[in-house]
Nucleic acid binder design. Sequence first.
DNA 1: CCGCCGCAATCGGTGCTACCGATCGTTGCA
DNA 2: TGCAACGATCGGTAGCACCGATTGCGGCGG
Lengths: 314, 314
Amino acid sequence: MTLAGLSLRDLEYAVAVGRLRHFGRAAEQCGVSQSALSEQIRKLEAILGVALFERTRRRVEPTPRGALLLRRAEAVLAEARFLIAAAQHAAEPLSGELRLGVIATLGPYYLPGLLGALRARFPRLQLRLTEARTAELLQQVRRGELDAALLALPADDAELSAQALFFEPFHLVCPAQHVLSQMARVTLADLDRDGMLLLEEGHCLRDQALALCGTAAAGSPARFASSLEMLRNMIAAGEGFSLLPLLATAGRAADGLTHCRKLDDPAAGRTIGLCWRRSDPRGEEFRTLAALLAAEAPAGTRRCHGAAVGGDAV
Amino acid sequence: MTLAGLSLRDLEYAVAVGRLRHFGRAAEQCGVSQSALSEQIRKLEAILGVALFERTRRRVEPTPRGALLLRRAEAVLAEARFLIAAAQHAAEPLSGELRLGVIATLGPYYLPGLLGALRARFPRLQLRLTEARTAELLQQVRRGELDAALLALPADDAELSAQALFFEPFHLVCPAQHVLSQMARVTLADLDRDGMLLLEEGHCLRDQALALCGTAAAGSPARFASSLEMLRNMIAAGEGFSLLPLLATAGRAADGLTHCRKLDDPAAGRTIGLCWRRSDPRGEEFRTLAALLAAEAPAGTRRCHGAAVGGDAV
DNA sequence: CCGCCGCAATCGGTGCTACCGATCGTTGCA
DNA sequence: TGCAACGATCGGTAGCACCGATTGCGGCGG
């Protein structure tokens, strides 16, 4: 368009000549032959319509106009070098801003222990964290409002890629005096669907709990909690029991009001994964990140390793 | 050097894609085929080491890093456009700064009436005026400390070009009651060398006056003036007479103390010319300027027209 | 469910031009 | 007067920007 044929390289040549006052040495410094530099300067002068230099056999001096334009040229080059420098920074994997979403039943229990390791490994990574429910997270990732999300797999979406991080078992949490707390072994089959407390609709944890305990029966609305913490309070109040992900139970077993125990079903739990837009060019970085997260899987979980799960196979 | 292969055109392509979010339309706007633009974007991404865009079939979005780098790219382009704009301004003939020297026996009498016309014709020309004697002016022009000078030709210097502007006759100025003021006709031959007042050494006018009046006799040192005005005062005081250039006599004839009259020698006078470094790329502009100055030659002078006088022919 | 459309990527071919080495012309110097 | 330095110029070459055509993929309408 308006920048007819102007080239950064030619500006460099001109600036070099302006500095060194010598075509030969300028050519050497620019790594081209003197003839090439001479021709390019000539071309540049033609483009600008201004004679940049006054040539004598013994002297090369910028004309007054040339000196002014050379200063402008240096400004252009400076900006270009800023661009290069910014690109070099940006080229570092997992640097800069990363908008990461997390499901509400994982974030508060998982992230606090994670951020330190993350910062140590990727000090230039700036996390922007969002907490929401699975459907919202997926939507935001699809729309590009988030770069990636931590959620329970599978996240069935052809547009997304995902990689499993670790398997987080569900534990049974019931009131301290509850009959389930007395049994030697507890399996999913032992759970009374009517006594189970659930999260509101939209939380994947609710669906997983229901799926584990067979077909849904119409529970009373009062038995829905809007958050995990609320759910825990309801259990402590004797309202019923529930399945809670391991990380949400850590360090809380000894409050006296609730009883927390493992289930004897190894399949009872959820697979936490990282997902992102399949089309995002940072796919490799996300895999690297996922590898780190899997390697740093919290105690009690079972680390997943292996290839990422492709979009439609998630 | 450090800006490996970066090209302003490619930055324009990238910015267009970033704005339009569409390779095809961006290509159209940039006036290239879609394939060319696509390849150049790919090359640019390779150079920067950063994926600038996330491509889906239906969407093209800058990556967060891409968005950042595109902003930098726009800054580069903005500077480049400034450069182009500055060049377009600078390309206007006789615009910008012009360091012009004038001999002291001409400047004060010639320039005041000239500057208005000059400003009207070349409103963007900014004159930096210097007053000095011929040798100094020539030296400064040669050294590039001045761009051009107004002086009496010939200025014999192979390094310089010059163009004659006008012939300025010398008038005889003598005390009002002086014998020369009574004569019907006065020629150079009538002038008594011992009664003639001169400027100090270095002034070309001194040399010219001496040359016109034959070989020099040793005048008394007291009869040298350091400036034309001083010379005029000495004449008014009855110290002697002198030859003064026409412009220096204008509007002063009626002061009662001095008498001013033409000489009957058409050759008595000096040719005022403009000179500049032969190697200065603005030669054409100087010729244009000289043409204007010749056309605007002051009343009483004889305009010179025709080709410029080459350096060694001056 | 299929075929069409829109779009970016890709491919093969072409012409421009940046580049080089060699040479020229000028200038200043020994 | 010959020599050295320097920028301009020239002929030839190779790289690459560009083009038109095609492919491949995803969305949409029938």
